[in-house]
Design a protein around this nucleic acid. Structure first.
Lengths: 111, 111
DNA sequence: TTTACAGTGAACCAAATGGTTCACTGTAAA
DNA sequence: TTTACAGTGAACCATTTGGTTCACTGTAAA
């Protein structure tokens, strides 16, 4: 469960960078090499490699090196945990706003 | 739309810290002052104030200072954008895995 | 067998992050 | 009117982050 917190940390951190979200979008479209990605995002090979490593660390991307090219593709994680976290909090939010709505209704009826 | 990217950045960054997620959970339960939160998370007032500012910046929390105490509560944003982003990518993921499943099925039938 | 190319790792850099202390302001309570 | 308390801002600090360059390895192509 501590483990789980750390993973949420890693995943949300990975998603907090616009370049990395872009890489995920790209990989949703088709697999790509480090060179492909570096070109598309106008960045050094080394720089892109780091981003890919972050995504890989978070389990969002998997890579395989064959010959001299490393191919990146979307990983097996489907963001279930993150979706669940957000959904849970949407419910908290909603509950509170609903309560507010009810209160307002109540006050209205009282007048 | 650039605006939107920046907001996703800010929100995911805000969510990438375990303390800040904890604060959101707490505020889902009940409103709290900076002092309350600082105590609960064993942190300086100043430190907690910074976290709250980050959450406020991302629109996840709103605060109001009356007298000398600043009360924090969940903000009007309900993480719709973030949920949408994640959902969209869950679909991308799923589509790719479904395609893989189909390929496997196809290969099986061929044998 | 050269030569060119994809990636990698180390070293470096500036900026951001997560935290502290300390001095201060403003408000509430005695 | 003291005094205590909640918050704030500035300054500082260590670590992380997002990026670079440069030297290197290994593989593919000529």
């Amino acid at each position: 469960m501590v483990h789980c917190k750390a993973r949420l940390d890693a995943t949300f951190a990975a998603l907090s960078d616009v370049t990395r979200r872009g890489v995920l979008e790209q990989l949703g479209d088709s697999d790509a090499s480090i060179t492909d990605l570096a070109q598309r995002f106008r960045m050094t090979l080394t720089g892109m490699k780091k981003h890919v490593s972050v995504l890989e660390q978070a389990g969002l991307v998997i890579t395989e090196k064959v010959g001299r090219v490393r191919t990146c593709k979307l990983g097996p994680r489907r963001l279930e945990e993150e979706a669940a976290w957000i959904e849970r909090h949407r419910q908290l939010w909603s509950a509170r706003f609903d309560a507010l709505d009810e209160l307002i209704e109540h006050l209205k009826r009282k007048e």
